[in-house]
Nucleic acid binder design. Structure first.
Lengths: 181, 181
DNA sequence: TGAGGTATAGAACAGTGTTCTATACTTTTC
DNA sequence: GAAAAGTATAGAACACTGTTCTATACCTCA
């Protein structure tokens, strides 16, 4: 697993081959089939680990719903930048033959639910009154994912990336928040 | 080229193999090397064609900058849905060994510039006063791409997708538009 | 009619994920 | 402690991939 993440970080999906991973882990290629059910099984394990971490990072800490929503967006980006290999597997769709297992998809929806909960808490104080929480969650997620996937691919020309993302995130959230208007 | 797009639409990047394309086009695999410089050359041709169409679709028609900006967003989505194969090559990063040629990248930046121009026109009537046009263009593009890439992958559970996208687009644009606040 | 360039089929090469086989090891059971 | 059962191992093998090579066929144009 460590070898796989290492290799992914170093040389991307191109270098992510069963033989290379096995070589890096000082192990036979067959071991990946015994322990992970092949390449897709290994990707499934990385996916699950990633979403487990992401859910933890996105969970609320403080009390103010609006602050917490913003913080969860920042946490999402922080996760992506600090766990690029995980993020690539989870969100970048770079592995052609891979679709997550049912169990892995479940872990993912649980992480997504964390965002829905943030929005519910916001709605309980009057924000986002005219929109379904799931719908808004999907929109915010899509927007952040779009922004960050470009950043991961290094297609971002902002000078201060942290600041620009904060500008982006608060801009997007404000657009849906009727209280701010 | 038609065979390649057909195959891509039917079975995605998995079915996009040199041999399969050649078979579909009733042609020898070698032909793809003679005419397109291999698989990546073929992808490059699809990429270029796609961005040429996209630029045309995003060009302004009417006079009101704000309306035109919104319309260009809708045109972007329309392009993605009607040219899924092109969009996959251009934006989905599903082809591991492929990076566009310099010429192809130039065509892409020209299409992106069309969005920057929209924003310039908006700024000439007072919208988006406190943000660099390139920066905002990148944000809007990222948000739309994030949303639409999920829709292309069929990860969208809205009932009325057209309406939900419009809600998304106007929400995001409103968030950056100080005049609407 | 003849020469030059090009498309062709088909084999070949190195690489991929995966499967198979026989060997080695580790654990459990008597 | 010894025998049996289960599992990890290495290494070859299979079908596939993109790509390259070679000799043959064809088409165009002087």
């Amino acid at each position: 697993m460590a070898a796989a993440l290492q290799l992914l970080a170093e040389s991307g999906p191109e270098g992510f081959t069963v033989r290379a991973i096995a070589r890096r882990a000082n192990v036979a290629p067959m071991a990946i089939y015994n322990h992970f059910d092949g390449k897709n099984g290994l990707l499934d394990a990385i996916w699950t680990e990633g979403f487990t971490i992401l859910q933890r990072e996105m969970a609320p800490i403080g009390q103010d719903p609006k602050d917490e929503l913003l913080r969860s967006g920042i946490a999402y980006r922080k996760f992506a930048l600090e766990h690029r290999s995980h993020y690539t597997v989870m969100f970048m769709n770079r592995f052609v033959g891979f679709t997550p297992s049912i169990a892995a998809a479940y872990v993912a929806t649980r992480a997504f639910q964390e965002l829905v909960n943030h929005i519910h808490r916001c709605q309980s104080v009057g924000m986002f009154p005219d929109i379904a929480a799931d719908n808004l969650a999907q929109m915010l997620w899509a927007a952040c994912h779009g922004y960050i996937s470009l950043e991961i691919l290094d297609i971002n020309f902002a000078e201060d990336r942290d600041k620009t993302f904060l500008q982006f995130l608060s801009g997007v959230e404000r657009g849906f928040d009727v209280l701010a208007l």
